[in-house]
């Protein structure tokens, strides 16, 4: 489904990713673990076209999407809920969600039942329905995170990238976010998940990759990584 091979990417002259390979098979949840600054967000950005890869290959459904603009990649069926939420502050909740379906309302992507999908997002996040006319900029942090996830779902994507959906949330909301991720998994949505809570991420994921200073240091089935002594010591310590 989503295949990344030998990806090199960075900002300006600074290379952050030094040739990483990641595979996200159809219907599976794959998680990317790593400490702050390891390059997780950079990986997500390179996949969705927010930054141009220096070299390497990224393919979606067998179609080469390397170096395409983010808008074309989105129209090819990849949704990215970016780090820091990035909701459209001056637009209402409903408008934010509709923009998530922009390619389906305009051109390029199979239309389907956008109104029905809007309903389903509201069912998944009842808080959003209560606040559907409110401006996104006035939502609480947790509500904005739900909006960012809901907006990405509105594309009806083939692959969903979630970058730290629990960032800055209270503990109760963090478990709510993981409940939603597993619900989405139950619906068969293919996901690449980056999370600060590595243990919880490995619980919901099928497969995991560990990113260290822009390189994959190890990868394997989630159950196996969970019990790997090195991974345990570095990422699943008492803090989590």
């Amino acid at each position: 489904m989503l295949q990344i091979e030998n990806l090199h990417a960075g900002y300006g002259k600074v290379e952050v990713l030094h040739g990483i390979s990641v595979a996200v098979p159809k219907g599976k949840v794959v998680t990317l673990i790593g400490s702050n600054g390891a390059g997780k967000t950079t990986t997500m950005r390179a996949i969705s076209g927010m930054i141009k890869p220096v070299s390497g290959n990224i393919s979606l459904n067998g179609k080469n999407i390397t170096g395409m603009t983010s808008s074309r990649i989105a129209r090819s069926g990849l949704a990215h809920s970016p780090e820091g939420r990035r909701v459209f502050a001056t637009l209402s909740v409903t408008d934010n969600l509709l923009l998530g379906a922009f390619p389906r309302l305009t051109y390029g992507r199979e239309r389907g039942d956008v109104q029905g999908d809007l309903e389903r997002v509201f069912e998944l996040f009842p808080r959003l329905r209560e606040r559907k006319s409110q401006l996104a900029g006035t939502l609480s942090g947790g509500e904005q995170q739900m909006l960012a996830m809901g907006r990405a779902l509105m594309l009806n994507p083939d692959v969903l990238l979630l970058d730290e959906p629990s960032m800055g949330l209270a503990p109760l909301l963090v478990s709510e976010v993981f409940r939603i991720v597993s619900e989405l998994k139950g619906r068969g949505i293919t996901m690449l998940l980056v999370e600060q809570f590595a243990a919880a991420a490995l619980n919901v994921a099928d497969y995991g990759y560990v990113l260290e200073n822009g390189r994959i240091s190890c990868h394997g089935p989630a159950d196996q990584l969970k019990n790997d002594p090195a991974v345990k010591a570095a990422y699943l310590g008492a803090a989590h």
Binding site: S48, G49, M50, T69, S70, S71, R72, A74, R75, A79, H80, P82, R86, V87, F88, A89, T90, L91, D95, L99, G100, F102, P103, G108, R109, R151, L155
Partner: peptide, 15 residues
């Protein structure tokens, strides 16, 4: 309006 608000995020919407 979305492009005015956050150009990168607007790109992620397929705009």
């Amino acid at each position: 309006v979305a492009t005015s608000s956050d150009r990168d995020a607007a790109g992620l919407m397929g705009i």
